[in-house]
């Protein structure tokens, strides 16, 4: 909880190095590989932000598309009026406020209500935005013209991913992180030692929502023309859940293990078999539940535990793999 252990210093250094290496990519390619890398980094940012909240609470949030769309729209509406960095901050604030409202309505009760509420949230926000647009303006969408290139977007998303990682790391060492650990162990005990459990969850959800909204804001210039159906595409929420759970949410870097392969697979499927994307998504969900409930990182950890057990039979009994 206090100074950095050598292990932590090493992880931080390694993380910084990997991000620096990844940042070099646009120098080598600015076509297909950059384009798919933007997707990968986008989903990396979204999935780690998602796991920031859903990892410790086990609440499946489907609000990602709503936050993302709000971020995109803040840029779409404000690009002619305000400087871009300010818009990113505004997007973050809007995301946090939205998350706060959703959290306040649902996180005080039980987890199921939260899932149901977020299930239709993107659709709700999409309808509201569409309604407002048709009511108060003639155009259905918004144009976003900027000087931003694919490389800029890539770098910004990479920086955002780094920021999410750093934030998770800092939260884990904070009162909030400790509170989440206690809640994860026993919510009744948590309340009786003095943790405002609902408030802790809401704060965490707001941080997560703010990051997702920033990701949407950063990606906005990529669309050029923003329409409600693309900005609030509910598929984004589901893909984020799949990728994060595929990787595993116990470790900070777990979601990344799911993001990279699945983004590539989805890219391949949607360009070659566009009618089959739904089926692939469905199968992915079933695979997560039945085959790899703890994600790939969970599998790796179990394998590692088995390996250490075999090589050191005298060691203390490991936790039983579920």
């Amino acid at each position: 909880m206090m100074g950095l252990t050598p292990q932590e210093t090493k992880s931080l250094g390694l993380g910084a190095l990997l991000i620096a290496l990844a940042a070099l990519l646009p120098l080598f390619d600015d076509g297909f590989y950059l384009s798919i890398s933007v997707n990968i980094v986008l989903y990396a940012a979204l999935c780690t932000s998602w796991a920031l909240f859903s990892g410790p609470t086990h609440y499946v949030s489907l609000a990602t598309a709503a936050f993302y769309g709000l971020g995109t729209y803040s840029v779409g509406l404000g690009i002619e009026l305000l400087p871009y960095p300010l818009l990113l901050l505004i997007a973050a604030a809007i995301g946090a406020v939205m998350a706060g409202l959703v959290g306040a309505a649902t996180l005080r009760i039980s987890g199921v209500y939260f899932v149901i509420f977020t299930f239709g949230l993107a659709e709700l926000v999409r309808q509201l935005v569409t309604w407002t647009q048709t009511k108060f303006s003639t155009a259905m969408g918004l144009y976003v013209f900027t000087e931003m290139t694919e490389s800029h977007i890539y770098w910004m998303l990479l920086a955002l991913t780094g920021a999410v990682f750093l934030t998770s790391f800092l939260i884990a060492r904070s009162r909030l992180g400790f509170a989440m650990t206690v809640i994860g162990n026993d919510e009744t005990v948590a309340r009786h030692v003095g943790i405002d459990t609902a408030r802790s969850k809401i704060i965490l959800f707001m941080i997560s929502g703010a990051f997702i909204a920033i990701a949407g804001a950063i990606t906005a210039p990529r669309y050029i023309y923003i329409e409600p159906p693309s900005a609030f595409n509910p598929m984004i929420s589901f893909l984020v859940v799949i990728m994060a759970l595929l990787g595993g949410t116990k470790r900070l870097w777990g979601p990344l293990v799911g993001v990279i392969p699945f983004t590539i697979v989805m890219d391949f499927i949607s360009s070659n078999f566009p009618n089959h994307t739904m089926i692939v998504v469905g199968l992915a969900f079933l695979a997560i539940v039945y085959l790899i409930p703890h994600g790939v990182t969970g599998l790796l950890e179990n394998a590692q535990a088995r390996w250490t057990k075999r090589s050191a039979p005298a060691a203390v009994a490991e936790e039983k793999p579920a």
């Binding site: 909880m1 206090m2 009162r175 400790f178 509170a179 650990t181 206690v182 994860g184 162990n185 026993d186 009744t188 005990v189 948590a190 030692v193 003095g194 943790i195």
Partner: peptide, 27 residues
């Protein structure tokens, strides 16, 4: 009895000091 199973004894006890009336932190 309700303990926090994934934590060690010290961390269990710390939870009382961190979030209870005294609200201490760290060392």
């Amino acid at each position: 009895v309700r303990v926090l199973p994934s934590l060690d004894a010290e961390e269990n006890v710390m939870s009382g000091a961190v979030f209870g009336r005294v609200r201490l932190w760290g060392e």
